[in-house]
């Protein structure tokens, strides 16, 4: 029998997940703040020792090409060397990787999230949209499934088994049969409760829609998932392309008849790089 989950219950049960990293919201807020400086970013990074350690480690590696170890100890120097945008990417990816690790997210789930995040970043560059928002949208698009796996593991497993047994089954319909709702709705409730920006909430809520609302982050996340699955980036037997909205593709000015080999190659190589760099477990 299907569960009938209320929004209140979804939020209440979210206590089973680790605390959502506040630094994600803080970083996104700095993007809209003209007065944000390197000092602002430093103070955000230095609040969390795990993130601080990872930023130093990655800054050392980036600065020296991974060839000659050198100890960087000053965060402002690290940020100057690596660049503001790259440090923001590191902070977002590391904090969400930590969140995923503490949530006991499967490797497949994390790799798929990274793949969609990277594809979203590359589409955002084409569409002249924020790569930071795109990364967050991609990394969090399936957060509702993480909640399902953590809060109702039995029902979640039944969904997985049903999907394996019925090759043509729709994931959202199958989830509704067992949960009374789907991961897009659960994700929207969680993202709203975590006070994520409206466009991130919309991207999580509408990433499976064939007719999504006209919003660049929604379009970016939606098309990024289709590309990540089409390229088989997480090498998972169950990977399938779902809906692909014509309007979303048009919004991103994507021309499927153009030579996309470089775009796909970049997405594939960067996904591998980020999965190695930001392994969740």
């Amino acid at each position: 029998m299907a569960l009938h989950l209320s929004e209140a219950e979804i939020i209440e049960r979210a206590a089973l997940l680790p605390a959502f990293p506040a630094v994600v919201n803080d970083i996104l807020q700095t993007l809209d703040d003209d007065n944000a400086t390197i000092g602002t970013l430093c103070s955000l990074v230095e609040r969390d020792p795990v993130i601080t350690g990872r930023v130093f480690s990655l800054a050392n590696s980036a600065a020296m090409g991974g060839r000659t170890p050198r100890e960087l100890r000053d965060m402002q120097v690290a940020i100057s060397l690596v660049g503001l945008s790259r440090v923001r990417e590191i902070v977002l990816a590391v904090s969400l990787a930590e969140f995923s690790r503490e949530s006991r997210m499967s490797n497949y789930f994390w790799e798929h999230s990274v793949a969609v995040g990277v594809a979203a970043q590359e589409l955002a560059r084409i569409a002249h949209y924020s790569v930071d928002y795109a990364l967050v949208g991609g990394l969090l698009h399936d957060i509702g499934q993480l909640w399902m796996a953590r809060c109702y593991p039995l029902e979640f497993q039944m969904v997985r088994m049903a999907m394996q047994a019925q090759t043509k089954a729709c994931i959202l319909d199958t989830e509704r049969q067992h949960f009374g709702t789907d991961h897009c709705v659960v994700g929207r409730v969680l993202a709203t409760a975590w006070h994520l920006p409206a466009s991130v909430v919309a991207a999580i809520s509408h990433h499976h829609d064939l007719y999504p609302p006209a919003d660049k982050l929604v379009a970016t996340t939606h098309v990024a998932e289709a590309i990540a699955n089409a390229l088989d980036l997480s090498r998972h037997e169950e990977a399938r392309v779902g809906q692909l909205s014509e309007a979303a593709c048009q919004q991103l000015s994507l021309d499927w008849h153009a030579d996309l080999n470089f775009l796909f190659g970049k997405i594939e190589a960067r996904t591998r790089y980020l999965c190695q760099t930001f392994a969740a477990s």
């Binding site: 729709c170 392309v241 692909l244 499927w256």
Partner: peptide, 18 residues
């Protein structure tokens, strides 16, 4: 990978071909 979708839809056909 494309078994769930209609490959005659332009965007899907374009993605598959690319």
């Amino acid at each position: 990978i494309f078994s769930l979708v209609d490959r005659h839809r332009p965007a899907i056909a374009g993605l598959y071909k690319a």
